[in-house]
Structures are given as C-alpha cells and as structure tokens.
C-alpha cells in the first residue's frame, strides 16, 4: 500500500511501486486534467507539483511521491498564484487545442513561485520542458510576464 497525498486528500493505494504517478493520478484517481503526451519526459504535458516543484509525472514512480504533497491542475487554482496564472492564460488567449496547457500552467506556476518576476531568459529556461504543438509560445511568454507574482505570494 502506498500513502499518497493528492490535492490535499490522502489516499491509500494498492498500486505497483514503479507505476508512474501520471497513471495513478489519471487511471486510478480519475483526475484526468494531467495529460499524457510522450511517456519519456520530453513534452511536459504530464507536469504536476511535488511539494511545489514541477515534475514530469510520466516517469516518476509513484513510490517517489509517497509521503509528499502532489498538486495537479485540478487544484492549482486554489492558490492565489495558480489562479492568477490561469487568469493570465485566458486574458492573453494563450490556449488553442488546450491539450498541453495543464502542464504549461503547472510549470509556469512553479516557475513564478520560485522567481516572482522572471526575465525572458528565465521564462524560457523554466518553460523549455513543455512542448506546445499549436506553438502558443509567444502568448505563454506574455501571460507569464503579466502575472504579478510578487502580489500573490
């Protein structure tokens, strides 16, 4: 049995230790906002927070998340910063197909948490792990610049 905290809820789960966190979250807990894109940590669609840090859940064994706080896109808006990022995404009309945007928002929120006013280079470095096939990158950059994380933190 693995003890897993997801979005503040404790779960006792009978899953293999090496099952990636992504599939525990999606297929066992039914939280489908976190997406599958590549399975090898190349696209970032599966990004969640582990104790506030962005991680690629498709390659993270669930055992590595045991006893730590997992936050997914479904709950990121509960923090002031997460909600600000979501609003900035809408204000800047970032979204096209939307499939990668859960991961983008998780990465952006983690970036802004540690760097409240990132430079363009810091935005690029913090977001380089997240692919967008619709290529909404210019708007992602603008949305992140627009978040006043100092006020939210």
């Amino acid at each position: 049995m693995i003890q897993l905290s997801v979005n503040g809820t404790q779960h006792q789960l009978d899953v293999p230790d090496d099952m990636p966190l992504l599939w525990v979250v999606r297929d066992v807990l039914g939280l489908t906002g976190t997406k599958f894109g590549c399975g090898i940590a190349q696209c970032g669609a599966c990004t969640v927070h582990l104790d506030g840090e962005a991680v690629r859940s498709c390659v993270l064994p669930v055992s590595a998340a045991a006893g730590r706080a997992v936050t997914t896109i479904e709950a990121v808006g509960q923090s002031a910063l997460g909600a600000q990022v979501q609003q900035a995404w809408l204000d800047h009309e970032v979204v096209q197909c939307g499939y990668c945007q859960s991961g983008q928002i998780m990465s952006a929120t983690a970036l802004l948490q540690r760097q409240p006013a990132p430079s363009d280079a810091e935005i690029d470095a913090g977001m380089a792990g997240n692919l967008c096939r619709c290529a909404t990158y210019t708007r992602i950059r603008a949305a992140i610049r627009d978040v006043d994380a100092g006020g939210a933190a």
């Binding site: 999606r26 039914g30 939280l31 489908t32 906002g33 976190t34 997406k35 599958f36 997914t72 896109i73 479904e74 808006g77 979501q86 995404w89 809408l90 009309e93 979204v95 939307g98 499939y99 945007q101 859960s102 928002i105």
Partner: peptide
Amino acid sequence: APRLDTPNKVNGKAQFTIDLQ
C-alpha cells in the same frame, strides 16, 4: 472576442477523448 472553449482548458476540466470514462 474571447474564445468560448478555453476556460475549461486552463483548469483541467476539459475532457478530451483520452480522458473519457
């Protein structure tokens, strides 16, 4: 005009085929 389909695409609620149960 703001897109009609985007609010649920920033909070994990939008369901794609892969998300269906």
